[in-house]
């Protein structure tokens, strides 16, 4: 039974991105939906998930109802195994300790490049966005899951500015740029789950969210999408997933 109004867009986004994680992995999570989704995974299927935050935290167990307002607040350290410097925790990515980097995105293109720096020309920007934070480091050095809102202005053929690299201009351009490891693994939106095809490294629809059509995803995307030959339809969020999520974020801080 599909009940489309049973959950918000951010709730399905959080639930589906949590499902991308596997027990035992080490995940480097950004603030917002990634932090919440990693915590949801940890509280449901993945008790052995190790969550890292860029404020300098290894093995966080965020408390229900006490979500940190950034990944640099004391709430991030609750029941963690270790706190360390921010450069030190980011260097764990470079050394290779991290299985999955997990962040949100403001604007993404067909090669999975993310922009969180400028709207319009960077020399005379229409809007100066906050910038990379650890996003560039995470996406340069780890396999990435990105959770973001699906809108035509956010899914563009070419981003205005590559803040956090995906597959740059496709093919082997990422490795040629000096990034031999990592890259986009999944993009999750309220409409679909995307992977990247092997040769050109372009975004591909791997599964549609329940109740969503191919046309709807294409209409809300600013470039031509590839659809997987074995296009799946994702299972809707379970009662347990939604109940756990609402327990974690009762004030809808990140799931409004």
């Amino acid at each position: 039974m599909i009940e489309p109004h049973r959950y918000t867009a951010n709730e399905i986004l959080t639930v589906l991105s949590a499902r991308q994680l596997r027990d035992g992995q080490v995940v480097f999570a950004g603030v917002g939906v990634p932090l919440l989704a990693a915590t949801l995974a940890q509280r449901t299927r993945c008790p052995g998930l190790t969550i890292l935050f860029e404020g300098g935290v290894i093995g966080a167990f965020v408390e229900p109802g006490k979500l940190p307002p950034s990944t640099n607040d004391q709430r991030c350290t609750k029941r963690a195994n270790m706190v360390l410097g921010s450069a030190e925790v980011l260097l764990l990515l470079q050394r290779g300790y991290v299985d999955v980097g997990f962040m949100g995105g403001a604007q993404i293109d067909q090669y999975g490049n993310l922009n969180s720096s400028f709207i319009g020309d960077s020399l005379h920007p229409k809007t100066r966005l906050p910038g990379t934070g650890g996003g560039n480091d995470i996406s340069s050095l780890a396999n990435m899951i990105v959770a973001m809102k699906h809108e035509k202005r956010r899914f563009v053929e070419h981003v205005d500015f590559i803040t956090s690299p995906g597959f740059i201009s496709g093919g082997d351009s990422r490795a040629q740029s000096g990034l031999p490891t990592g890259g986009m693994f999944r993009v999750v939106t309220e409409l679909a789950v995307f992977s990247f095809e092997d040769a050109e490294r372009r975004m591909k629809v791997a599964a549609l969210n329940p109740g969503v059509s191919r046309d709807e995803v294409q209409d809300k995307t600013g470039f031509e999408l590839i659809f997987d030959d074995d296009l799946a339809v994702t299972e809707p969020p379970s009662e347990n997933e939604l109940a756990t999520l609402r327990m974690l974020d009762p004030e809808h801080l990140f799931t409004a």
Binding site: L93, Q94, S117, S140, I162, P165, R174, S177
Partner: peptide, 9 residues
Amino acid sequence: IRSMLGSDV
């Protein structure tokens, strides 16, 4: 370092 490479940053 090994990050920032390939980006517009």
